[in-house]
């Protein structure tokens, strides 16, 4: 496919939606201005407009300048124009698209599934059964008496082997 645009920097800037242009006018991107990724005072020079900051005098936490919805809108718009990395860090370190997918924490249930009860008690039950089988003869002897014990011993002696 042929390429559809052949734009200079200024022409390309004209293609940006007004919403994004206004945002970058107020908050110039990274090399011109740095933004904190943590909560700061609201009047700090590196205050992040996406994060709830503290009031310098009262110390109360203020709502972020851009709400979660508006910052998401801006980010997605910037992503379409290839300048998403120029945006400040979002609230709660929010990510979108591939980046979000890659950084996603696995669910607890996926990491260690609970399983059915028969699955959870399987090993324990098998152990109990094998133990019981191992000492089955002792139990039978106890119940049936010394005559049975002697028979077992005789069988042991009479067992035929190939050697």
């Amino acid at each position: 496919m042929s390429k559809l645009f052949n734009l200079s920097a200024l022409e390309a800037f004209e293609k940006l939606p007004l919403q994004l242009r206004n945002f970058f006018t107020r908050y110039p991107p990274a090399p011109f201005r740095k933004y904190a990724s943590e909560q700061t005072l609201a009047n700090a020079p590196d205050a992040n407009p996406f994060i709830p900051n503290r009031h310098p005098v009262t110390g109360k936490v203020q709502e972020p300048v851009y709400s979660l919805r508006r910052q998401s809108d801006l980010y997605k718009l910037a992503y379409k124009f290839g300048i998403a990395d120029l945006m400040p860090t979002m609230r709660n370190n929010k990510k979108f698209y591939a980046e979000k997918y890659e950084n996603k924490a696995l669910l607890k249930g996926v990491l260690s599934p609970k399983g059915h009860k028969w699955e959870r008690t399987y090993d324990e039950r098998k152990q109990r059964i094998s133990d019981a089988v191992a000492k089955a003869e002792e139990v039978i002897v106890e119940a049936k008496g010394s005559k049975y014990k002697k028979r077992i011993e005789r069988k042991e002696l009479e067992r035929k082997t190939w050697f």
């Binding site: 559809l4 734009l7 200079s8 940006l16 120029l86």
Partner: peptide, 24 residues
Amino acid sequence: ITEMSAEVMEFIGSRVAEHLNNVT
């Protein structure tokens, strides 16, 4: 800030141009 400086505009524009010029 109410006015965008020329160098910021140039910087953002170049990034956008880089992206859009590869659009098919």
